[in-house]
Structure formats: C-alpha cells, structure tokens
Amino acid sequence: MNPYLPVLIVLVFAIIFGCIMSGLSHFIGPRKRTLSPVKDEPYECGVPMVGERDKMSVKFYLTAILFILFDIETIFLYLWATTFRELGWFGIVEVTIFLVILVAGYVYVVKRGALEWD
C-alpha cells in the first residue's frame, strides 16, 4: 500500500469533519435572527468601537523572515543527523563550518537588536 494513501484518506476525512463541525450551528442553532444594531459589532468591551485597526509592528515581519532562515538551517542539520554515522568526523567538520558562518549571522542579528521587543 502506498504510504500516502492513509494521508489522503485522513485529509479528506478531516476536511469533511471540519465542514460538518463548522456548519453544525448553522443548521442546528436558532435561525431567528434577533436584529440589533450592536449585536454584530466586533467585540470592544461593550463600548462603541474606538479607532481604526492599527498597522502592525515590523517586528512580526522580521521574526517571520528570521524563522525561515533558521528553519532552512535546521533542515540541513536534519539531513546531516540522518547521515551522521556514515559521514563520521568529516561530516562534523563540514557542519561546524556551516554553523560557524550561521552563528556569525546570528550574532549580527542579536547585536543589531533585531530580536529586542520593546
């Protein structure tokens, strides 16, 4: 059996299950809409909505980019970890060089204060 067949089955099932759950209240819940001007308003602690939606901090963006870069690094390390026994010391030296370069980047990131949330 193809190992991805169960993935496909579970995927289809999960989508169906999600749709059923998500739509359940729509069909079972009360249909009569009580009309009130404030009912549909976004939650704002009971007072009228204040202000527009703010622009978000650039920090989130920076974090997301740094995540990708370190994620790629982690994946390379996974490849090394699976072949660790065969590569031996040679592999360790390779990965050390790889990591030294990246740690230099990491130190730069920290020194520039990109990871400070103020």
């Binding site: 989508i15 749709c19 209240s25 079972i28 819940g29 009360p30 009912k39 308003e41 939650y43």
Partner: peptide, 22 residues
C-alpha cells in the same frame, strides 16, 4: 456550544471566518 446561534461579526471576511477553524 453546538446549539448556539452562529454570529459573524460585521465587516468580517465571511468566507475566511468560516474556513479558518477547518
């Protein structure tokens, strides 16, 4: 929870509001 009325807030993106939990 299941028997509650379904409320979509005003100004929400209806489609994405529905499919996000899925």
């Amino acid at each position: 929870l299941i028997l509650k009325e379904e409320i979509v807030p005003r100004g929400a993106n209806k489609i994405f509001f529905q499919i996000a939990p899925i």
